[in-house]
Design a protein around this nucleic acid. Structure first.
Lengths: 136, 136
DNA sequence: CTGTATCCCGTACGATACTG
DNA sequence: CAGTATCGTACGGGATACAG
């Protein structure tokens, strides 16, 4: 990892750059932070598939959430670019929430996570390892 | 790959899971909890690629972590089946940490997350949406 | 209906000291 | 070297009341 030279973007388009364990971990951490909110995944899965829900519908779809938390998480997701908020200037107020294309694009990755987790449950139970063991 | 109406569950054979938005969200939440610890991703990326590190090496590789946190996160990851801990009954003590096969298997998914995040940065900046808008 | 504004609390995390 | 034990704190999140 001796990087005395900056290999600026000589790469033909797009290739991000070298990822050290440190920088990779930092990036993924930032990403996870975007998903970590107590209600964000619930919101995400309610909206996956292009669904359009208004605020009150989300409230009903996720009964345990409070208004404060719902709006807070929605706003964060909007700021992160995952959620789109459309205001209808009516009385009474009407606001619709959808996922952006980018938000939708998260679906396969979450699926991948689910598959990964599913694998563990078909695995043998590991034991304490002392010194030399044949375990994998 | 722009499927606007992607279903989250595949029903073909033996797959027991009908996934509602609720259950899917709950599952992914559990998975994220396994990765959410302040130092788990750092540990993961240090060990990716089959690397074997002893406790003190991890400490050095992740300078900001305290012993307490390092051991705590390692133990949780071990309990979750991602990390393997091998004890050498010597004096002085020696303990090596590696990822399990299952832990290693997380790598592609994290990569997928990185790619997903990278996409956003090539995207136009969204604006407030009022009533009808041509945005996506 | 769609939000704000307060207050409160548990816990995840940090700092530090000690031990086999 | 590889951990425990203890204490203190910041902050994410819940409950509730209020507002445009």
């Amino acid at each position: 990892m001796t990087r005395t030279h900056e290999k600026v973007s000589y790469a033909p388009e797009g290739k991000p750059a070298e990822l050290t364990p440190i920088s990779a971990a930092a990036r993924v951490e930032k990403i996870l932070k975007m998903l970590e909110g107590r209600w964000k995944l619930s919101i995400l899965f309610q909206l996956f598939g292009g669904k359009v829900l208004r605020f009150s519908e989300l409230e009903r779809a996720i009964p345990a959430v409070s208004q404060k938390m719902l709006i807070q998480q929605l706003r964060q997701m909007e700021a992160d670019g995952m959620v789109r908020r459309v205001i209808y200037p009516e009385v009474p107020p009407k606001v619709e929430y959808t996922l952006t294309r980018w938000g939708q694009a998260l679906c396969p990755t979450l699926d991948s996570l689910l598959k990964w987790a599913a694998v563990r449950d078909e695995l043998p139970v590991p034991a304490e390892s002392v010194a030399d063991d044949a375990g994998l």
